[in-house]
Design a protein around this nucleic acid. Structure first.
Length: 476
DNA sequence: ATGTTC
């Protein structure tokens, strides 16, 4: 296990040793420190990333860190835009896995259990859940996928699937530049017919209620006490998965030709300016835009479901986009006076107040980072402070697993699951499918959020309490 | 995360 040197409250240095070119820096409070595994797999993965050519130190481990494929989830690796590398595994299998929060002006107390159930059902009819499910918008997928991959959310809005201002509240305005469908394999294109599907695993749709707003001075991102919220967590589905798989193979085969020694297959990488590197970034942007579009079309379907169940128009419900952020992405950004390709894997961008890339409405506060808790624990909105420059403008993205999926399925039984889920309404009674998503399998969201807030990197701005959760099921 | 063990 790599050496961890306590540097200050909630802050550990993993000093440069062996093949490492830079240090790693890890943020954990005492509870989270205890949940680091004995082998320190997640720490090793940070150190491996610190050995890649052109890496800009330090490699960052966020409070929700846990071992992943290549870079740990909860990891940030910045690479010099000129001399650095790009790694498909350091973005992750689910390219632009991310969250979108919708606000409403519907008082949560006005919804009885039957109405809430009806809303869930109207949403479920429109948005297929679980692995392998296909889009119900078949013609849209047949006609416009290449345009959506290049043009992102704007292409959907231009066709009537959303409001013009929806994209003002999406990272990159819902379209990452540099997308090129010719860099996408035929196999990946064949897996792209999944717009407005949720997926499985940790993906979910959650109805919640605003239960804490500490700041009286701001407009709180359009959120109001005790109003219903809708939280969408999904990504690029089979399409992004295939692109990661394709380019991990391509990069692993090509890396030796560039004199790169790979610490692990998951960190397979190539120079940013190599053909393989450029092609990956062009294909990744297609998956990023596909995932933004997935969350946009889900928003469209949710608005339709609300009109059907509650009667009335969009003006009655609000259902405004508060913000939409990527959790798995690589982007060119300016940090410490240098241009860098920042890989965020299970990490959220959080621009500080005043940063010019914030949407106008959030310029004075910084845009919110949305941090979902587990199925029966709150979600938080936080903003970055000036000090968040230390983590390349990155903060934690969720609670973070404490048990692997297989370990959770082994240790959690029906009784434990039922007890842990409390009063939250679920779309399925087949709880066995959800054991690996039980709150017990996750770290305490309060520890994860407090770790950065206590040392001034983030500011908590809202808390949402879950009322009802739609999850995808695995295989029957 | 994933047409989950091409």
């Amino acid at each position: 296990m790599p050496e961890m040197i306590l540097q200050g409250p909630n802050r550990y240095l993993l000093p440069k040793t062996g093949a490492m070119l830079v240090d790693a820096l890890l943020f954990l409070n005492d509870n989270l420190r205890r949940s680091i595994s004995g082998e320190g797999m997640e720490l090793r993965q940070l150190c491996d990333a610190a050995a890649l050519p052109g890496v800009i130190g330090p490699v960052i481990g966020l409070p929700d860190i846990h071992a992943g494929f290549g870079l740990p989830i909860g990891g940030v690796m910045a690479c010099c835009a000129d001399s650095g590398v790009v790694s498909a595994g350091a973005v992750g299998m689910d390219i632009n896995c991310g969250v979108r929060l919708l606000s409403t002006n519907i008082p949560s107390a006005s919804l009885d259990k039957r109405t809430l159930r009806k809303l869930m059902e109207a949403v479920e009819v429109r948005i297929p859940t679980g692995i392998g499910r296909k889009s119900r918008h078949r013609e849209l997928c047949l006609d416009t996928l290449p345009q959506i991959m290049s043009g992102g959310v704007g292409e959907l809005i231009a066709r009537g699937y959303g409001r013009p201002d929806d994209k003002d509240y999406i990272e990159e305005s819902g379209c990452l530049g540099g997308a090129d469908v010719t860099a996408v394999s035929k196999k990946a294109m064949e897996r792209a017919g999944q717009l407005s599907t949720l997926g499985g695993g940790n993906h979910f749709l959650e109805f919640g209620t605003v239960d804490w707003l500490p700041d009286q001075e701001t407009d709180n991102f359009g959120l109001h006490h005790d109003m219903l919220t809708v939280l969408i967590h999904t990504g690029s589905r089979g399409f992004g998965h295939q692109i990661c798989t394709d380019y991990t193979e391509i990069m692993a085969a090509a890396a030796p030709r560039y004199g790169i020694e790979l610490p692990s297959k998951g960190l397979a990488c190539c120079p940013i300016h190599s053909k393989e590197g450029r092609d990956y970034l062009a294909a990744m942007a297609c998956a990023v835009n596909f995932a933004f579009a997935n969350r946009q079309l889900i928003t469209y379907d949710i608005r339709e479901a609300f009109r059907e169940v509650l009667g009335g128009s969009d003006q009655d419900f609000g259902l405004n986009v508060v913000y939409d952020v990527a959790h798995n992405i690589a982007k060119f950004e300016e940090h410490f006076g240098r241009r860098a390709l920042v890989h965020r894997k299970g990490a959220t961008r959080a621009l500080p107040p005043g940063h010019p890339i914030n949407p106008d409405r959030y310029k004075d506060t910084g845009h919110p980072a949305i941090i979902p808790g587990s199925m029966n624990s709150p979600s938080y909105l936080v903003t970055g402070t000036a000090a968040v420059s230390e983590t390349f403008h990155s903060v934690n993205h969720g609670a973070g697993r404490t048990l692997s999926r297989s370990a959770a399925r082994k240790t959690i039984n029906h009784e434990a699951f039922t007890a842990s889920i409390g009063n939250v309404m679920l779309n399925t009674r087949d709880y066995k499918q959800l054991f690996d998503e039980a709150p017990l399998a996750y770290k305490d969201i309060n520890d994860v959020v407090e770790t950065l807030a206590e040392i001034g990197l983030t500011r908590k701005v809202a808390r949402l309490k879950p009322l009802a959760v739609i999850k995808g099921e695995g295989d029957d």
